[in-house]
Computed example of a mutant assay.
Amino acid sequence: MLLLRGIVSDVGLLVLFSVQLKMKLLAVTLAALSAIAFASPVLLENRAAKPHGVDVSHFQPNVNFKTLKSNGLSFVFIKATEGTTVISDTFSKQYTGATNAGLIRGAYHFAHPGSSTGAAQANFFLKHGGITLPGVLDIEYNPNGAECYGLTHAEMVSWVKSFSTTYHKATTRYPIIYTTTDWWKTCTGNSAAFGSTNPLWIARYVSAVGTLPAGWSFTTFWQYADSGPNPGDQDLFNGDMAGLKRMAKGS
């Protein structure tokens, strides 16, 4: 009997140890999944249910915006300006076409931080870009030189702040920032200074938005492809149509 009790006792301890081990493994797994969810925000809802749109420029000079509307698109961003000298020669026609087709529209400015101040480029954009959705600061890889335009991390953050505050003073709205996580980390040092004020438009051509720049817990727009069934880059609004309309009205 003493031997049997010992065997039963040992079996009980093994069962208890097994249960405790399983509980610890479950806790570790849940913690890991939680960490992944917060470190790499993704669009969790059904993409098909979200408003889709495109962004276009002079590279798409003959867009039929009524066709875009009939294809189910809801919004379009149109290039207006670049630096302090370039006004897109197709902006006016494209903006009018998008308006007449009933699309929610907005304008974007391609930044050249190495050529003039953020305030100067914001004022140039304000003078020549239409306003419905908040204007967009398109800040990304330099097409003609040094990736970060010769600016240090601190200088780049200061430049973006200059553009953003100038635009905000004129419109009471902060501009959307279009960028990639890679460029933002490389050229601003992954600054978290804009996450609480400026909506984010992230460019990433894969199946999920992935890790976002510091300061942002979600992206408002996602450029998920540079080509597709409609002209221009393919975009998604991270919300519903009612939310997109509220954003366009500034509410």
Rank of each mutant, 00 (worst) to 15 (best):
M1L: 15
L4D: 05
V8I: 14
L13Q: 10
L13C: 11
L14W: 12
V15F: 08
V15E: 05
L21M: 12
L21I: 09
L26Q: 14
L33S: 14
I36Q: 14
I36Y: 12
A37D: 12
F38W: 11
A39K: 10
S40N: 11
V42Q: 08
L44M: 11
R47Y: 14
P51V: 01
H52R: 14
G53D: 00
G53C: 02
S57L: 00
H58K: 13
Q60T: 08
N62S: 15
K66D: 12
K69L: 07
N71E: 13
L73S: 04
V76R: 00
V76N: 00
V76H: 02
I78Y: 02
G83K: 00
T84G: 09
V86E: 05
F91N: 02
S92D: 14
S92I: 11
Y95A: 08
Y95L: 11
A98C: 13
G106T: 02
H109G: 09
H109L: 12
F110N: 03
F110K: 00
G114A: 05
S116T: 10
G118A: 09
A120G: 07
Q121I: 06
A122R: 02
A122T: 00
N123Q: 14
L126D: 00
H128D: 10
H128E: 09
G130L: 05
G130Q: 05
G130E: 02
I131Y: 14
L133E: 01
P134W: 00
V136E: 01
V136M: 08
L137T: 02
D138H: 01
I139W: 01
E140G: 03
E140P: 03
N142E: 06
G145F: 07
E147L: 12
T152S: 15
T152A: 07
S158L: 06
K161M: 13
S162M: 12
F163R: 01
S164K: 04
T166D: 02
K169I: 05
T172Y: 10
R173D: 04
R173Y: 06
R173C: 06
Y174R: 05
P175E: 03
P175H: 07
T180V: 10
T180Q: 11
W183S: 05
W184I: 03
F194N: 03
G195T: 05
N198R: 05
Y205W: 15
Y205G: 07
V209Y: 04
G210C: 08
L212I: 11
P213A: 02
P213V: 01
A214R: 06
W216D: 03
S217Q: 14
S217A: 10
T219H: 04
F221N: 02
W222P: 04
S227P: 06
N230A: 15
D233G: 06
N238V: 08
L244M: 13
